[in-house]
């Protein structure tokens, strides 16, 4: 097992290097750079641009240098913890992303937990009571959850929350806590605000996990090893959780890897609608304005999270399934 973990960790290094090159390359693919974009915007709105100043900026950030020089500059900075400078915000990338990333990871983790806690028992119930009334109800609700666009659900829940529960909706904090230092009251405020995003972002994930678990479990319940376990005289619930559920969880676990980054980038539209101070909207804007260091850093972060997620799910898989561990 230890061997496997070490091997998996070492494999991550070349992948990471490759991804960083690729993401930097992709950001540079559109013609021009932040400055040409900036000039175009200024001129479109009727302003004038000091060309000498632009040229000075271009030289200062090395935008006139070839691709590889720019990449090496950026990546050596990243290794020292300096992610570069955001042109649009006029601030170091570091100052911009960490708090948002922290909030995003907490909202995402909560959502993931919500998803699992809801999906697991319903999935098991639906599979063991196939074609029962309960199964049909959950299936219908699940498909509705899948079908309703997230932003729509967000709008409805916001309206309901505001109209009937008097919640201050939108954002992750009430106005009085937004700039306040961290305290228990602020944490509670965050929890209250996180409820709607959690439900909105979690709904479709929950629905698809229920379907996956149900289908897997239905397959596993028919396997001969379940009959063997029954022929040993064991109790049905014991058999269910010891044998088929454990195997049915394997695909469940392997999705952890994709869920992490998806939770961060996938909810951009919801974050815009709900005015969440998470990473999604910031990433969207930085891409539109070709704010290359900010966008690059975000994409790098998302890639790292994907790798970490896959790593975690691989370790969990090896732990659950000995056939992976020993091959």
């Amino acid at each position: 097992m230890l061997n496997y973990i070490v091997k998996r960790t070492l494999l991550m290094i070349p992948t990471l290097i490759f991804i960083s090159i690729l993401s930097f390359f992709l950001i540079q693919l559109p013609p021009g750079d932040y400055l040409t974009n900036y000039i175009a915007n200024k001129e479109a709105s009727g302003g004038s641009v000091n060309l000498a100043e632009v040229e000075a900026l271009r030289q200062r950030y090395g935008l006139d240098r070839p691709f590889h020089t720019q990449y090496v500059r950026w990546i050596t900075g990243v290794l020292k913890g300096d992610f570069g400078y955001s042109f649009e915000w006029n601030r170091p990338v570091n100052e911009l992303i960490w708090e948002r990333l922290g909030l995003t990871v907490s909202v995402s983790t909560l959502t993931l937990l919500f998803t699992w806690i809801v999906a697991f028992p319903i999935g098991v119930y639906s599979a063991t009571h196939q074609y029962s009334i309960g199964d049909y109800v959950f299936t219908t609700v699940g498909f509705m959850g899948l079908a309703i666009p997230n932003f729509m659900l967000a709008l409805i829940l916001m309206w309901l929350g505001h109209r009937y529960f008097g919640l201050s909706v939108g954002g992750l904090f009430s106005p009085e806590y937004a700039e306040a230092p961290w305290s228990l009251a602020k944490l509670l405020d965050l929890a209250k605000h996180a409820l709607i995003p959690m439900i909105v972002i979690g709904t479709s994930g929950t629905a698809s996990l229920i379907r996956t678990l149900r289908a897997n479990l239905l397959d596993e319940i028919q396997k001969p090893y379940v009959t063997t376990a029954k022929s040993k005289g064991l109790k049905d619930t014991w058999i269910l959780f010891k044998y088929p559920v454990r195997v049915a969880l394997i695909p469940f676990i392997s999705t952890v890897g994709w869920t992490l980054p998806q939770l961060i980038s996938g909810e951009t539209i919801v974050a815009v609608v709900l005015n969440l101070p998470t990473t999604g909207p910031l990433l969207l804007r930085s891409l539109q304005s070709q704010d290359m260091y900010l966008a690059g850093s975000f994409i790098l972060m998302l890639s790292v999270l994907t790798l970490v997620g896959t790593f975690i799910s691989d370790i969990l898989l090896a732990w659950v399934d000995p056939r992976i561990r020993y091959s």
């Binding site: 001969p224 090893y225 376990a229 022929s231 044998y243 195997v247 659950v320 399934d321 000995p322 056939r323």
Partner: peptide
């Protein structure tokens, strides 16, 4: 007690 045709699938693959 009972034994079955396919010893591979009659044992659960995830336990010793």
């Amino acid at each position: 007690s009972m034994i079955f045709q396919e010893p591979m699938t009659s044992f659960s693959p995830v336990y010793t």
